[in-house]
Design a protein around this nucleic acid. Structure first.
Lengths: 342, 342
DNA sequence: TTTCAGGGTGGAAACGCTTTCTTGCAAAAT
DNA sequence: ATTTTGCAAGAAAGCGTTTCCACCCTGAAA
């Protein structure tokens, strides 16, 4: 029992070819006849074979695995990001090893050079404040590093312009009658987990409002942890401050969800007494009729993955920064039925 | 540039020994003379040598890595669990590869037999409903599997008795005057993410109350997502139902934190008008004076890790179940200053 | 018909280690 | 003095891959 995993030799034997040919099939080498390739692939799947990444690394210098370091907050966002990354990498038969940052301590472990995180072919880092923590702002590795949803002059990066998103929110919401409000994601207390995304979005909102002659009083900004319940508390808070209609920019779709829930509880009509704009563009927003600033999360992840692959393959240029812009998606939560001068 | 890393051969040559001896030094093999060992160590540090982990894994036939599959909810709990597991494994030169379940889709990928998760020496699975999803309730691997914070007759497991914890909460809180309330963690809608922990705790609470002749009306159970804000909403809800004092069993410390925050906002005194008992025993509860049912999370993780190591080393016995019990920690949140008959 | 090019393939060597086998040698036992 | 024991350490055989070289074809060019 406990039969060992099949090796390339067993595949070769079953397919009646040499091990060299099996290896060529594994690596998509062009000079393998289609008929041979198929026989080998059939043998592989019949044996349940998968190559040993460590042996690949020893022999060829590549393990066909990359590391993704990411925080464990805001899971829907990271889930989509992962999806985008995986899309690109799986086409190239790359695997992803995840390094979720559960705590500052755990992060420190990841940053030690002997960590498993550095034993792969490259690093994808999805954490804002992370680069700033490192000595010389560099990760302790010779292998390529690409930042995603973050920015640094040292490394390739792909990120969304959150400030711009805030401005777009301002432009959209300022057109409606009624007072303006914002819900901002609380910044983590810990330096290590620092995440300024919420700040950037609200700053853009405030500045965007200023540009059209409106101002956002500090009292109209509700700071909340990242949860739907936070959105509910925010609406309760706003209701104590003033009367409808409320024009609310929620710093994230999840916060907006709480506003929707609480509005329903309070009997406020969405699109009339409460105009609500989220941020993220998660799929469920469509069903809920929630207007939102849609981020191209998957594309951002895919682009980061592509840049990393290029680096792994030897590209040596200076760091590239790919900026993505959110898109305003208007739904019923900011489309009321009354008509006013336009 | 990029001079190649020194290998075991160069170390052996410099220290004037064979490569076998260098390897023995690396692996703390006892039969190396102290004098020889020191010569080898000196050679290593003078060359800046560090062993190639991939080569070790290929040659040794082991990956010196185990997989930990876990959900990404309730991060403090899992952080502590990880800590306990790592404690044991790092002593044995083992690394942990994490497989966080971000979504049902991602879980399905982990369960496919060709996943990276199965490229390691063993599996540690910290997810309640997971075993039930599998064909024949077995993971598609010949490697050893141990469940932690979960239970199944098929595999070794280490878990905390949540129902008992609920009963202990009942016994403690029923002694105080005033009405009784509970906050229960919402079950995930998704079958895959199913987590009955919240249910078990509240069920124990209800049954424990029944035993002493008290009952817990359904209206006194507030079901909330897992967030501090959920606790705040819960207290608001209870305040609408009845007057102080409130005796509240929060299904998790994080929910209790929200109750603390909201009580402060509402001017209710903890320990007097609000008696509050959490569940988990996280470290911050001490500073906040929160009574709680402390779970031996680290020990549970450590025990699971030990069982897995034994299996990896060839232990063949039938599945073992290790049950842990929570401990009641009484602090000021359930120690009021008034005196009544005891 | 012969020569040549080049695609397709098998197998040996290499990657950097661990592990087993073997030998050398000194101390203990006969 | 001879045999036995056991520890230390070198040599060599793997581990599961990639890569390179040599060889065999087949078909086009001469």
């Amino acid at each position: 029992m406990a039969k060992r995993k099949p090796t390339i030799h067993e595949v070769a034997h079953l397919a009646k070819v040499g091990i060299g040919t099996v290896s060529r099939v594994l690596n998509n080498h062009p000079s393998v006849r289609t008929e041979t390739r198929e026989r080998v692939l059939a043998a592989m799947s019949s044996l349940g074979y998968s190559p040993n990444p460590h042996a690949r690394r020893v022999a060829g210098g590549r393990s066909y695995t990359i590391s993704l370091i990411l925080p464990v907050i805001s899971t829907e966002f990271y889930n989509r990001l992962l999806e985008g990354i995986e899309q690109v990498l799986s086409e190239e038969r790359y695997e992803i090893a995840l390094f979720p940052i559960f705590s500052p301590l755990r992060l420190q472990r990841y940053l030690e050079s002997r960590s498993l995180a550095y034993q792969t072919d490259g690093l994808l880092v999805a954490s804002q404040g992370l680069a700033h923590l490192l000595p010389n702002q560099r990760f302790p590795t010779e292998r390529p590093v690409v930042l995603v949803d973050a920015h640094s002059p040292r490394y390739d990066s792909a990120f969304v312009d959150n400030y711009l998103g805030g401005q777009m929110a301002a432009q959209h919401l300022a057109a409606f009658p009624g007072e303006l409000f914002a819900i901002q994601m609380q910044e983590e207390l810990d330096e290590v987990m620092r995440n300024t995304v919420g700040q950037e979005r609200v700053a853009g909102f405030r500045d965007g409002l200023a540009r059209v002659g409106r101002s956002l009083p500090d009292a109209h900004i509700f700071v909340s942890r990242f949860s739907a319940e936070g959105g509910r508390l925010a609406l309760q808070h706003f209701m104590r401050l003033s009367r409808p209609p409320y024009n609310i920019f929620a710093g994230a779709d999840l916060l907006a969800l709480g506003v929707l829930e609480e509005a329903e509880r309070q009997g406020l009509e969405i699109g009339e007494q409460v105009r609500l704009l989220g941020f993220d563009g998660h799929t469920w927003t469509e069903a809920r009729g929630l207007s939102t600033l849609s981020q191209p999360i998957e594309e951002m992840g895919a682009e980061a993955a592509r840049m990393l692959l290029e680096r792994i393959r030897g590209y040596k240029g200076s760091p590239r920064a790919r900026r993505f812009e959110p898109t305003l998606v208007v739904r019923s939560s900011t489309q009321d039925h009354t008509v006013y001068a336009d």
